[in-house]
């Protein structure tokens, strides 16, 4: 297995976006790309990352391999790469290590690191194809700010989607808060658009703690998609055009 990115920045951001939610995980490498699927320890949230082979500078995977890695260790290794350095990952069949090589674009500095692989029992979940009742596309910075703001007032947020607006509400000991975002088009700046596709109205409640973990992916993508159906986990997708995506799933809070 050998994969090379032109710039380390994307991989650094991907790891930063998921490492606080899931500790150790397996990267599944096939000839179509690298992916991981992992739940947090409480089985409330799930992360699914796909890095498509087309998004790499070069990519080769002769035999499918599952590499168990501590994401904190991977973050440490990637700290040693400059944002514009190229990154090459190499793993030989049956080897218990993965190699990282970083090269500056003027080629005057090359650094190499070897990370021990771990034995990880991965439990993959089958995520059913879902026709969601409401899909909201919005700037990822708006979601990050909304979740951070409301976290000051409560632990949970109720997201309600109607035809032309989406409402985020919370309440706690010191008071209540809500943020309403209205659909707005923007032909010249599609990344600032708020688009609401509503088949049925939805109202779901989620723990803000997890949403704040998810919005760590905001630096990867200008836009985010919230896919919701009543009594169903929320899917939060950060698309990375040409590269792949990060999808987070979050189980709702339900009436006792």
């Amino acid at each position: 297995f050998e994969a090379k990115w032109d710039h380390a920045s994307t991989l650094k951001k991907v790891i930063d976006a998921v490492k606080d939610l899931i500790g150790d995980t397996s990267w599944d490498c096939t000839n179509t790309g690298m992916s991981l699927q992992s739940m947090d320890s409480s089985h409330v949230a799930l992360v699914h990352v796909l890095l498509k082979s087309e998004g790499f500078e070069s990519y080769r995977c002769d035999r499918n391999v599952s590499m168990g890695i501590s994401l904190n260790s991977m973050a440490k290794v990637l700290k040693c790469a400059g944002n514009d350095d190229s990154v090459t990952l190499r793993h030989e069949s049956e080897s218990s290590v993965v190699n990282f090589a970083f090269e500056s674009h003027k080629e005057e500095r090359v650094s190499e690191f070897e990370l021990k692989l771990m034995n990880i029992d991965t439990e993959h979940l089958g995520i059913p194809e879902t026709e969601y009742d409401s899909i909201i596309k919005m700037p990822s910075a708006d979601l990050r700010r909304t979740c951070a703001d409301l976290s000051q007032f409560g632990d949970s947020v109720t997201i309600s989607c109607a035809k032309s607006d989406v409402r985020f509400e919370t309440s706690g000991d010191i008071g209540t808060g809500n943020v309403r975002l209205s659909a707005r088009g923007s032909s010249d700046k599609p990344e600032t658009e708020i688009a609401i596709e509503m088949i049925n109205p939805v109202s779901l409640t989620f723990a803000l703690k997890y949403l704040n973990f998810f919005t760590k992916a905001a630096p990867l993508s200008d836009t985010v998609k919230l896919c919701m159906s009543n009594n169903h986990p929320l899917c939060v997708e950060f698309p990375m055009p040409e590269v792949g995506y990060i999808r987070y799933y979050l189980a709702p809070k339900i009436d006792e």
């Binding site: 089985h43 979940l125 089958g126 949970s156 723990a207 169903h232 189980a251 339900i254």
Partner: peptide
């Protein structure tokens, strides 16, 4: 009063 559900209530092991 709401309680946190688990993903395992919705998704099956693959």
């Amino acid at each position: 009063k709401t309680v946190q559900s688990s993903l395992m209530n919705f998704f099956k092991k693959a």
